[in-house]
Every structure is written in structure tokens, then in C-alpha cells.
Design a protein around this nucleic acid. Sequence first.
DNA 1: TTGTAGGCGTTATCAA
DNA 2: TTGATAACGCCTACAA
Lengths: 342, 342
Amino acid sequence: MASKRVTSHDVARRAGVSRATVSLVLNRSDAVALSQETRERVRRAAAELGYRPNSAGRMLASGSTETIGLIISDAAILPIDGFIPQVLHGIGQVNRERGLHVLLEGRDSSSGPNPYEALVDTRRIDGLIVLNPRSDDEPLRALIESEFPVVLVGSIRHPKEHSVNFSSRAGISAATRLLVDLGHRRIGMVAFAAPGFVAADARVSAVRRALQTHGLTMPDDAVDYADFSAESGYHATKRLLQRQPDLTAIFAGNDTIAIGVMSAAAALGRRVPGDLSVIGFDDLPFSAWLNPALTTVHIDAVQQGALAAEMLIRLLAGKPVDARQVRLDCELVERKSCAGAP
Amino acid sequence: MASKRVTSHDVARRAGVSRATVSLVLNRSDAVALSQETRERVRRAAAELGYRPNSAGRMLASGSTETIGLIISDAAILPIDGFIPQVLHGIGQVNRERGLHVLLEGRDSSSGPNPYEALVDTRRIDGLIVLNPRSDDEPLRALIESEFPVVLVGSIRHPKEHSVNFSSRAGISAATRLLVDLGHRRIGMVAFAAPGFVAADARVSAVRRALQTHGLTMPDDAVDYADFSAESGYHATKRLLQRQPDLTAIFAGNDTIAIGVMSAAAALGRRVPGDLSVIGFDDLPFSAWLNPALTTVHIDAVQQGALAAEMLIRLLAGKPVDARQVRLDCELVERKSCAGAP
DNA sequence: TTGTAGGCGTTATCAA
DNA sequence: TTGATAACGCCTACAA
């Protein structure tokens, strides 16, 4: 029943000092000159009373919220794909270490009122991380141009953006080489999202370029589009293999899609990898334990989140950032879902 | 470059009224008697200036933060298991509709300083949702007893707790009946977490009870323990099948674990479902597309999250709650991972 | 080394 | 129907 809330005033009275002194002792640790004895007295009073500064008062006076916003551009993906939770985890870890809070804001698709002003204009947050930003998101562009601290996990190709992204080149070219070495010539792809979704498009064109290196092409007919879920991957693959029955290998847009691809293959009586080789993306924690174990391009999503958080923290501190756009590498992990072309 | 921030004072001046009037117009919509004309004038001024009330000021004056805390008891699970993201999604949806914000707080295992006081005592949040609470979490018990609005997703069996949980009975007895009807007599289990983790233990004992109904027992030797990941499920299953090679069916503690179970079966040369039947829990979105499609107990995690959020919102509004402890049902989804006992 | 005074932007209480 | 005025709890010059 310690229901009466304790304010800095109470602490001050108990310690026999002024409120200002309390604030100094508790916030500016050793910066200012205060007698050890006063410090001790204040600390003890605070501890005895169980004093906890009211955050609203602190925000108002200091102008800092110690909170960052985290926007998931398409909240519906959260329960379906394993990627975002990993990024979340990375962001959470860093913020916890730094004592920052995270305000999580989902967005129901790209429609609906933009959530930025609700957080930024009301000064609820000091900085923002946007997951899977869409390049047609005008309010986001405006926010970036306003110099408000924003870090993207992904990219909208804005010259002033701060972002942490993946360069899929290395992983994709290794994957492509693997398939080509195994004798595959007719290679298709199931993108993890509809055309227009930057990250998905990027993977398709990266694969295309890599194939060209080997003198191979991937015609439009050899690409189909899923919509994040394994189920959508299943249906896309069925369409794809119906249209292009000669394909001997398929790039899945990510590992969740790969589950659907393998399921569709099974449904069509094609064995993986005997009749059809499959390569995933992301290397989710369970991918090594699928049947067959999935050969995939490993991406360290947790680290991506952590780096984004660290970059934002630098921005908040006004420290310089080495590079506005960070690109992480990825690498091929060979497992059991690829074999020689039939 | 609208860098100068707009305060209610500016709006008041522009509309030719006082700050108090601005507040009334903007917050208490029609509650109070104000002339239509004044309303209109204030609204227009606010719109023209792009006025956004400062949240800290509002919190301080009103005492309400319009924010709820969300604690993930073991943050390390987030990137590994598909369950929490679904709950998150459900919570997020409801809060978005209601215009509430969500402060996400992870916790690094049950160690570390408890995060409750950091949120509650500093008045950063109006209410709290705790995911996967542990029953040995003393600070949490204290918080519940303090009458602070808390809703658990899961349970710590505290009489005063507000919680949303699952009654796995229906699903488990259906699953058990299925196995028994298929001729299985030696049935084992791989729990999704170590003993002591309430939710995992509950599933083990529920399975045990259901088997007893059919005159079967599941000795301790027929149970092994994983640790959330598919990988840990793989290893646990290997141990289990080594110890109890006669098992013809395995309950997996959840679908992620089931992936590991099936993988271990494959590694040991057992075919699923021909040589070994497997039943999962949760029915994650991808489970229908695994190879073989997983027979599992469906749990609507999104709804669980949504209900928890709605319950908390009622609590915040001071409205009565129908039941402090809500238990959702679950049901068996038959797919392809179970077959007649060999 | 410490205290005083003012301000942060809102909301709430009264008078008018 | 509206406007002063006082909280709300904290921080930070600046003065002592």
C-alpha cells in the first residue's frame, strides 16, 4: 500500500536538500561538484522512499524520451514470416543494454494514416526505425528529409536515408554457381512478395544477373510471386511449374516460401532434390531441420536489427555515422535441397 | 522547415481563444458545451498550424499515457518460435484500433533486473501484458497483488491474475484418441521447454492424463525436453528414441519442435508417418506445408493476444471483466503426419 | 557546494 | 460559454 507516489520533492525533504540537488545527484552522476556526503544522503533517501522519477515530467523538462519508435510497415507479415522477429530481437537487445525503450507500431499494409506523425510530432520518441520500408511511402521520405533520426531496416533508395541492408550478391552468386555446377539450366524463382516490393524485386533481379553471368536467362515466365506465407509459396509454385514444367531448380524468395515450394513439389510428385532443387533465403533457425534440410542464403537478421539500433543511437547522440547506408554480406549454406539436374 | 514547434498557445492565439478552450475543443469532443463557431475556429487553427499535442505534457497533466507495456519474458524465444509473433500481432491490432501505443520490453531470461518497476513506477505505461510469465517471478506476483492492471498471456496460477490461456484438453484428447485409434500404444513426448516451464509442463501432464483415459501410460523415460528451437527438438528426439526405440508416436511440444522431431526421425531412418507418427501444437501458419503436412493441435494465438489486449483495455477503463481467467479452446487438425502404428 | 526560480505543454478547476 | 490560474513532476541556468 505504498500508494502515495514519491516525488523528487519528498526525496529532497527527507535528505534535507532542495529538489535541484536531488536531480543533480541522480542524473549527472559525477559530472558536477557535490559533496560526497550530500550524494550519499540523497541516494539513501531515494532508495528508502523507493523514488522513481516520473517519466512524463522528465520528458517534458529534458526534451528527451529515451524511447525509440519501431514501425513494422506491414504488420500482417509479423505472424507469418520468421524474419521480422529476428530483427526485433536484435533491436531489442541493443536497446535493453542502452536502457532505451521501444515503442512498437504496426501498420496494416501501406494504407491507413501514416504512423510517423503520431509518434514524431507528438514527441513520443527520439528516433525511429522502420522495418521493410516501401519506396512509395511519401511521408517517410519527408521524414527522412526533415533530418529526424530515422534508420531503415531495408531501403527506399533515398540518398539521405540511414539504412542497414543486405547485399545479396555474394550469396546469390554462390548459390547460382552451385546450381550451374550441378548441371541446372532451367532455373525459376518464386518471389516472396508481389512486384513493387523492393526487397523482393531486388532478389529477383540479383538472381537474374547472377544467371546471366553464366549465360543463362530467367524469363518472366519462370518467375512467380508469392505473398509472404508458405501457403502463397505453395500456390505460386504450382502455377510456376504448370507454366514451366521443365524447371529443374527454383530459388525461393525466402525460407518460408521455400517450405511452400517444397510442398508444391511434393504435391506434383516431384522429389526434392532429386527432381527439383530448391534454394532459400534468410536461413531461419528451423531451416536446417526441414525435410530435406534447406540449402539457403544465410542472412544474420538479428545482427541487422542490432546494427540498425546502434546506428540510431549514434544519430541520437549526434555522433557521426561511418556510413549512412550499411550493407551486410550473406553467404550460401549448402545443405540437402539441391542435387544434380535430372 | 516547420521547425518551430506548435503549442496549444499558438493555436489559442490564432483562434483568438484561450489555451483552455483549445484543450476542451480538441479533447472532450462534444462533452462540454461550446459554441459551434468556436469549435470550428479552433479546429481550423489547429489544422492550419499542424498542431500536435505534446505527449509528455499531456501525460503529466492527465496522468494517462495511452500506452501499454508488453513484456516478453524470455526474449531469446522471439526469433526462434513462431508463437510469440502471432500473439504480438493480435495485441498490436487491437491497440491500433484503440489508438493505444505499445511499449515492448524484452527480458533476457528470467534473470536481470525485473523490468516492471522501470515501466510501472516511472508511470510510463497505464497497463501491462506479460507474455509467457513464469510462476517463480516474484516481482510479477507483487505487481498483480498491487492491483496494477496486468494481463498475462499464459498463467502463473495466481488467484488474482487476469490471464488469457488455453485449455489444451479438448485438442489433446482428440489427438490422443486419434493415435489410439490408429493402434499406437507406445507414445512419447518432446516438451518444448525444460521442466519448470509452466506451459510446457502443462502440455506434458495433459497428454499423460489423456493417455490414462485409454489405459495407457507415458513413463518419464518416454518424455524428453527440448528448448524452444527445432534444433533442440532434434537432439531431444534423438535421445528419446535411443532410450525408447519402441515408440511409434511422438507428441511434439509445439510445431517448431515438431520440425526437429521429424528431422531426427529422418536421420534415424524412420519415416514419418509410416514408422513414426508425429503430432504438433500451435498450428503455425507454415505447418500445413511441411513435409509431411503436420497433424497438430490448432491454437489461435492471434486471438489470444487480441483478447488479452481487450481485457487490459477493459481494466484500464475500470469496466468489469467477465472472467479474470479466460481459457480458449483448441482443436485437432488432422493432416499427414500420423498413420497406423507399424 | 547548494538553493532559487522559471519553464516544459497540457489538463483541470473555478470564476466570470 | 469561456478564460484565468493552478497544478503535474522534473530539469537547468543562474545566483548565492
